[in-house]
């Protein structure tokens, strides 16, 4: 990585949450041509917190999927500040099915604090909707590349991120829960979030070391929002290369299953061998 190595984790969390941070809406404008947005879960609603559609990436059709926070307050509220509802995850599921049906690679862009914790969200099966996305991604026969753009919060982020390759912006964070939630659960004190940041191993460098992600996308000094055009050039080049590589996989589904099957196995103690 670059000269930005020394940035502390808490600062990265702040950078990842920067309001002007490039996300899936920017990706649609800069990386893809002829983009067509698909809306609705075909069950009851459309959740704007998830963006789904088809576009051309250097001339070849791909399915694009991502979480978005919205550009102004009105959009922020409609998107629950980037926290998808079950309707959002079921729209994502629809996009995954179509990627499979039409043989299109799937590119996902993740920036969410987590899935929306609301009464209706629970009544409509938030857990079941996320589980369905995980299950579907594990069997897709097309290549899936996921990019953690800003916040990768909890199961709500993983629901779009079971990639053959998982890339991560240099100042993005990806964690089991937000640092505030983490501090609140473990110490009953969300004001200790700063302390949590230091412990959680949520930065791109940490996650590369833990082999949770495969590649870090360098950002301009000061963060991706200071020079989005430069950052998108980096993303574009990385995605082209990763896609070319992923398309050579004989069995992308099996590759993905193996990738996640190995997660954390370096930290197991087997004891004596059993049946």
């Amino acid at each position: 990585m670059t000269q930005n190595d020394a940035i502390p984790a808490a600062r990265r969390v702040a950078l990842a949450r920067e309001p002007g941070r490039p996300g899936v809406s920017g990706a649609v404008q800069t990386l893809f041509t002829d983009f067509f947005e698909q809306r609705g879960d075909r069950l009851c609603a459309d959740d704007p917190a998830v963006l789904a559609g088809v576009g051309l990436f250097h001339g070849r059709p791909v399915t694009v999927l991502g979480t978005r926070k919205g550009a102004d307050l009105e959009e922020n509220l409609a998107c629950h500040f980037g926290m998808p509802t079950p309707e959002g995850y079921r729209k994502a599921l629809r996009a995954m099915e179509q990627a499979e049906k039409f043989g299109r690679p799937l590119l996902t862009f993740v920036d969410t604090p987590g899935a929306y914790p609301g009464l209706e969200a629970e009544a409509r099966g938030q857990g079941a909707a996320i589980a369905a996305c995980l299950a579907r991604m594990s069997t897709l026969s097309v290549p899936l590349i996921a990019v953690i753009m800003g916040e990768g919060g909890s199961g709500g982020a993983l629901a779009l991120a079971m990639g053959n390759r998982v890339l991560m912006a240099e100042n993005a964070v990806y964690s089991v829960l937000s640092p505030e939630g983490f501090a609140s659960i473990l110490w009953k004190d969300s004001s200790r979030a700063g302390e949590a940041c230091g412990l959680m191993k949520l930065t791109a460098a940490d996650l590369l070391e833990l082999q949770v992600i495969d590649r870090v996308l360098p950002e301009p000094d000061g963060g991706a929002h200071t020079d989005p055009a430069a950052f998108w050039r980096t993303v574009d080049a990385a995605l082209r290369e990763e896609l070319r590589r992923a398309e050579k996989l004989a069995d992308p589904a099996r590759h993905r299953q193996r990738r996640f099957r190995a997660m954390g196995n370096g930290w197991l103690c087997a004891g004596k061998e059993t049946i």
């Binding site: 199961g155 964690s175 833990l210 954390g264």
Partner: peptide
């Protein structure tokens, strides 16, 4: 931490 999250995928 994150390795617990990855067990969901596993």
């Amino acid at each position: 931490g994150i390795l617990s999250l990855m067990q969901m995928g596993k």
